[in-house]
Design a protein around this nucleic acid. Structure first.
Lengths: 332, 332
DNA sequence: CTGTTAGCGCGTTCAC
DNA sequence: GTGAACGCGCTAACAG
């Protein structure tokens, strides 16, 4: 049968070609964004026909031959953390601005993540941005058909490119700030020790404290959350120190709420408090916590550079780094 | 040429059929989830071959004939608001639990939203969950190929189904709480007046205040954000009242920070403060704001019911409602 | 520059 | 039960 279907299905390129009186290939070229050879005459007729029919190409069908869907997968553990909020809104907007859309995948339970990923459409994306640390780079790569995998979780194996904030800079500044104010003893409130990012973060704090002669008196293990910050602050392991370094702002907020009396008029009376993440929440009057942040524009800029890089100029800039910096607020 | 491709492309069903020594149709049936007629013998061979090759069907190609991709679009204005954080993590997890994945679309500038949507893969999703209020239901429907559109932004036209929290309940309780505590005058800090949700919210507050004989002394217009809450609290329009009703918790937090001295030991001394959203942040010690919330499990449950409904049992339950409730905390 | 042909990978008739 | 053949919508490759 000829194409003129009556059904309520949307018009295809065949309908357009038919109406314009040209072959499908010509219609395809005329409608292509790239300039392919078509006579001005026919091009006009095709465009007119397409307009008249309200034709929209089926991107899924197109991907079958072009091997590209303009879809980016964003893989996260979850989006409970406040720090996510600051970042993802901006990131999604930027990705959309280059004509791609985002499949948001929450790995959560981590368990059958691989099976889950390989059985979903996310398996077919052009690129995957991996914030979650549910698997090593090599394993993650297997979970995407032909996708370019960018590791943003601090893990990298030299094959998959990565972008990570260089936390050494900010931590160095923060500890130096404390030392300059006469801090001699300190406690740390840490997050998930299983995370490699957290491990190197802690190591950096320790070596910087050592360099400045600050004695680490206690190390309390939380899980980055506000609740765990409160819990640590009330625990038996809590001791008197000159400063408390938390590896997340949320935990620092919990600590601050438990020890409100230690910050009369928001000034530190008993100990100085340092957070991490530079949440926008720390601009709230109730939580003026000194923190460590990084330039999100620069960070997302690197991610976009990865997504828009032409062809395989890999090898080049495998592991990219973005500087962090210390932000001094009332609590220090 | 026979199929045995050497390229690094992933195995197709043709490869599986070849290895199993059966036709492609048989392989397709054997691999189908639904029970189609295949001899046990061949079925076993096919499954074994698929396993050996690590075959994964191309979901994009499949969608070409099945007209379903198991993709859900979630359309938002942006994800700046803290209230989003509480909801989306849960929502995405639930959607994934029924075997579907999520395309997250941030409409943002609202301008060429239609063009943007129709030119992206999101156009081809199975269903769209519309939190953004960038367009009316009828217009939104045109932006998705064959998708079922669920309006979650308070807009509905009787054709597209919707789920909305019934805010009247919570507001009624909140105003009654104030009246019971002797509140006689009040101010309102509102959000984007252009939103129909906001308009009806304000109207409900007003009628409830009227019923209880509470006089509305001032109406300040913010934008839901913490910053705008601070701004309103410092503006010239600010006056002495017995209670302040804010249409978002974030604004209430801003108000509270500007008037900290009005809440010694977190108890209201000069005026009572009511928020809206019941953010998890209001469980923080620094912002114990009485608020209005709703059962997110019930809300997401209704959304899932929509996504999993069998075929077109439409007409049935077009506009669904979820009750809100008042949560009393220290500020009231 | 043009039109025809041959796929992309998969599901589904429809005869056998 | 089986397999050949066709269609989904589109584009790359190849002749003209």
């Amino acid at each position: 049968m000829e194409s003129s279907r009556k059904g309520r299905t949307s018009p295809t390129i065949t309908d357009v070609a038919e109406l314009a009186g040209v072959s499908r290939a010509i219609a395809s070229r005329a409608l292509s964004h790239e300039s392919r050879p078509v006579s001005a005459d026919k091009r006009a007729r095709v465009l007119e026909a397409a307009e008249k029919l309200g034709f929209k190409p089926n991107l899924l069908a197109r991907s079958l031959t072009t091997k590209t869907v303009n879809l980016i997968a964003v893989i996260v553990n979850h989006i409970h953390d406040f720090s996510d909020l600051d970042l993802f809104d901006f990131l999604i907007g930027e990705i959309q601005s280059i004509g791609k859309q985002v499949i948001f995948v929450r790995v959560g339970s981590v368990q059958r993540a691989e099976e889950f990923l390989r059985n979903g459409v996310a398996y077919h994306v052009d690129a995957a941005l991996v914030f979650s640390d549910f698997a090593a780079a090599a394993d993650v790569r297997k979970m995407f058909r032909n996708a370019a995998v960018l590791m943003l979780n601090g893990m990298h194996d030299g094959t998959s490119p990565s972008v990570v904030p260089n936390e050494v800079i900010g931590i160095t500044e923060a500890v130096a700030d404390a030392a300059g104010k006469g801090v001699a003893t300190a406690a740390m409130v840490t997050g998930r020790i299983s995370s490699p990012v957290e491990q190197s973060r802690i190591a950096t704090y320790k070596s910087e404290m050592k360099r400045h002669g600050i004695r680490l008196v206690a190390e309390l293990r939380g899980d980055y959350s506000y609740a765990s910050g409160r819990q640590m602050a009330q625990s038996s392991g809590w001791t008197d120190v000159d400063a408390v370094f938390c590896t997340s702002d949320a935990m620092a907020m919990g600590v601050m709420d438990v020890h409100r009396e230690a910050f009369p008029h928001n000034k530190p009376a008993r100990f100085r408090l340092y957070g991490f993440d530079n949440l926008s929440l720390t601009d709230f009057e109730a939580y003026p916590i000194s923190s460590i942040g990084y330039d999100k524009k620069a960070y997302v800029g690197e991610i976009l550079r990865f997504l828009t890089r032409t062809g395989e100029v890999a090898g080049d800039r495998v592991d990219v780094t973005v500087p962090t910096f210390f932000v001094s607020r009332a609590t220090s």
